[in-house]
Design a protein around this nucleic acid. Structure first.
Lengths: 141, 141
DNA sequence: CCGAATCCTGCACGATACTG
DNA sequence: CAGTATCGTGCAGGATTCGG
């Protein structure tokens, strides 16, 4: 075991030389968060719930393009992580409200930073994409 | 079923699927960024390259657990997005250096915000995961 | 209205072997 | 050293149906 060949940034928590407890969670909190958020809808749901509480079909319509299955899955995942709270009102017909927990709300800041960057650098990203396309068609010919 | 056993050398080029993301850009810059970063390794590679330039196998060892295939794909994707620069030095043996473009470096800030949040709230996330596991084993029995 | 259950497809990803 | 070629697998994710 020779650590420190390339000292891993503290961002990944010096957790790369992991003891690997089980075959599930690899020990790095950043990786854990990424595995939670790296799906198609989680971040979008978080941002929407950050604005206001939503009921299930309200959210379904607000997103538009997500299947019921994936919305349920996404919400359950976020709920399991403690980011979203699910409130069932025993009315007829039943209604369920989803809102962010305080933990979920605290995630909105970092999320916004990423979103702001994406908006601010949209032009650069598009330009880079074009440069890459041009290089790909003229280069390896 | 295994149809043609006749060795067709290289007709089907589906070996390296999706050379670049190249997905249909849906118009939302945030979604575009998420589709770019929502894979298993992109963010980690960006963070590592944010500290220093790396050569291919250097990066391979530093990450530890990624396959050559995925490292290549990840780097190509980031390169196509204009976040990573690939420099080939025509030496013997050949060496290739990867570094962040200025655009890539500007992404480190927002990325760090997310990473810091993950570290700060690791305990809460782990607790949530345990609650979920307990509920899953006792609830739907 | 809320969601679970089922079926199905495609891609992300890994392991290995080979090349220049 | 830096990739490419190829095969196999698991799981994300969509469409639809059924139940409460």
């Amino acid at each position: 075991m020779s650590p420190a060949h390339t000292d891993v940034p503290s961002l990944v928590g010096a957790a790369l030389p992991t003891p690997v407890p089980a075959d599930e969670y690899d020990g790095c909190p950043v990786t854990g968060l990424l595995r939670l958020l790296s799906d198609k809808w989680s971040m979008l749901v978080l941002v929407l719930l950050g604005r206001q509480p939503y009921r299930f079909n309200e959210l379904h319509r607000a997103i538009g393009g997500i299947s019921q299955r994936m919305l349920t899955r996404t919400l359950r995942g976020l709920e399991a992580a403690g980011l979203v709270l699910r409130e069932v009102h025993p009315t007829v017909p039943p209604s369920v409200e989803y809102r962010l927990t305080p933990l979920g709300q605290s995630l909105l800041g970092p999320l916004s930073a990423l979103a702001d960057w994406a908006v601010s650098n949209e032009a650069a990203l598009v330009a880079g994409r074009h440069r890459a396309a041009a290089a790909a068609s003229s280069g390896p010919s």
